[in-house]
Design a protein around this nucleic acid. Structure first.
Lengths: 141, 141
DNA sequence: CCTAATGCTTGATGATGTCAACTATTGAGG
DNA sequence: CCTCAATAGTTGACATCATCAAGCATTAGG
């Protein structure tokens, strides 16, 4: 199944992670819909931390998408009063995004739902959970 | 960060997994584009194993989306000669999908790319990789 | 039979995403 | 200073993704 003559264990671990994220791909839309959000909007809100404004272009980089796409995404979130465009003082071309108080509340509601661990995680023992955390940390960086 | 008075370790593990799948959400489109596929098409091809035809409705269930969405996805993949609709013999309402030889080749090219493990995975020792595989297996089922 | 339920398609609509063209601003040289 | 290229964001055109409601054919139960 793994093409190159690499360690098959590495491949299997990676395949499981990929499978996991495909599963997420199925479940996120329903979860997001409860808050009237789309998956893309969730991703954006997830990246926008309270008290840490971000220029639009930087967000496009983090989302790995075109800048014009961010424009539309931000238009919709701003029209709902969740985020806010402000001109940068250093560079008048730049607009920085920040969460409104309403956005902060919605974001934390979102994170609360997204990070509610499923039953399968509870089946792991405390030691196993600790190992998993360690491994994933090193994986992501 | 975790709302309920639950084990914070469970929450952290889950958060890392969620973070991982958001990272995938960013990288999959580019990877898929190399094969002229969209993320949704990847998901569908991923579910459609060679030699194991699947009714359209079942696929809609697996993708957690509306049946009419599958119609469009299948239209595009079929017009490229990657998959094939065939009438079911047991039930003439049902159409089963199967990969064409071209589809089989593209699917394996796709899986090969998707499952090419990133460098960060190689940094784990053999033992650590083994643990990770075990933990993830129990997580997914 | 008649009727309800099922599987898929169609059409309308909105969101996501890309690209190319445009405006405004910045910054580097001449 | 003055041009001129690069950058940040917007706009418009277009394809895809995704939902819903309506419709058709088939199936299954009463």
């Amino acid at each position: 199944m793994c093409a190159k003559p690499k360690d098959p264990q590495v491949c299997e671990a990676w395949q499981l992670l990929v499978r996991f994220s495909f599963a997420q791909r199925s479940s996120l839309p329903a979860l997001a819909a409860e808050l009237e959000l789309s998956p893309a909007q969730c991703h954006l809100l997830n990246l926008l931390e309270p008290g840490r404004p971000v220029p639009m272009g930087q967000l496009a980089g983090a989302l790995s998408c075109d800048a014009s796409n961010v424009t539309g995404l931000v238009d919709r979130l701003e029209s709902r009063g969740l985020i806010q465009r402000s001109p940068s003082e250093q560079d008048r071309r730049v607009k920085v995004l920040s969460l409104t108080p309403l956005g902060v509340r919605l974001r934390s509601a979102l994170l609360e739902r997204m990070t509610a661990p499923p039953a399968s995680l509870q089946r792991l023992s405390a030691d196993e959970q600790r190992s998993l955390v360690k491994l994933l940390r090193r994986l992501i960086e």
